[in-house]
Design a protein around this nucleic acid. Sequence first.
DNA 1: GAGTTTCTGTGTCGATCAGCACAGAAATCG
DNA 2: CGATTTCTGTGCTGATCGACACAGAAACTC
Lengths: 204, 204
Amino acid sequence: MAGRGRPRAFDRDTALRRAMEVFWKQGYEATSMMDLTSAMGIASPSLYAAFGSKEALFKEAVELYNATEGAPMTRALTELPSAKDAVESVLRHNARADAQEGGPSGCMIVLAATNCSTANAPVRDHLATRRRAGTEMMARRLERAVREGELPAGTDTEAMAVFYTTVIQGMSVQARDGASSACLDRTVDRAMAAWDAVAGASTA
Amino acid sequence: MAGRGRPRAFDRDTALRRAMEVFWKQGYEATSMMDLTSAMGIASPSLYAAFGSKEALFKEAVELYNATEGAPMTRALTELPSAKDAVESVLRHNARADAQEGGPSGCMIVLAATNCSTANAPVRDHLATRRRAGTEMMARRLERAVREGELPAGTDTEAMAVFYTTVIQGMSVQARDGASSACLDRTVDRAMAAWDAVAGASTA
DNA sequence: GAGTTTCTGTGTCGATCAGCACAGAAATCG
DNA sequence: CGATTTCTGTGCTGATCGACACAGAAACTC
């Protein structure tokens, strides 16, 4: 691993983490190169040499976000024996993470590129794909719950996953508007109290 | 009303409506002056003379949005005799409006300035205030339902209003991601099936 | 008609955007 | 040691941002 030329003077992982925090707080388009370089402690050519472009840096930041902030959710959905406990765990984690002190408010995947210019449509679509992947993961967990008898046969697992995803995404908007963790938890209380009704709901 | 000087060559209301549609579709920051002038059919000095600035134009566009798109929701909350019917009407209206063909997807108040640079913080705060106003209106309607006996005494009307607001805001994100009106309606089905559980939920 | 007022269209302002050219600096290899 | 390779920092690029100066055009009042 001994590089041939002059070694990099900054830690790539640390710089990427700083970039992620800025993108998380300000979103993709509202973050300028100067915001990034000053937060990462490097000059712009170093950024381009190490990450390629602003867009490539953002996608790496999203991956890092998924690997760190998203890990507890993935673990809950795959490891907890009860689907209801798993979904509640995901919601509780979001309520805590979305409003945590010192950090940006709300989920980066939801908020970082909801509205952006057509020139940056690839960035928006990239996050939209990530959001759909989250819904898919929850839907598969609910299907398993049906197979295991935790949820009644015939449950519309797809609609149920969309419902809880909708609540999660709404919570990010609430957090960005200043809602406290306690306030988000009250919403989680209600979303979970509705579990049986949500599972048993028909398409009207 | 006879103006003294040269009369305006464009219809102010029509131009404002066009501006609203652009802001609705692209958000505040992603919309450039050129987007606005070409959509409104006027040159930039005419825009500044008639509306003051990009920010002032946006705020007028938000008022127009409230007066048109938001009117059915306000009417439902004030006129329908049942709070449950009123909230369901609001949700159904959102499901239809958020995913209507030919128009922008999702609610403008929710999506037009979720993430923007610090320079445009006033715009973001303006929309956040509007969002809180919507929650407040629903909370007052639920309080009335408690007074009238439709909801049990001791119902946490504030938390209940926040819950349904969260669902509405999440639906806008879903619509922006391409969810159909039918898909949003399935979420409404579940949110309304949960009515009694949501009303009776405690703070865990 | 002349004078006044207001709007329109062209052209451009300084600031800022993402991105890169270039040369000097710091490491390894022979 | 010299040669090579890679990174760093300064400073710039064309493009675009929101906003406006200016002069001509079109209505009014007298």
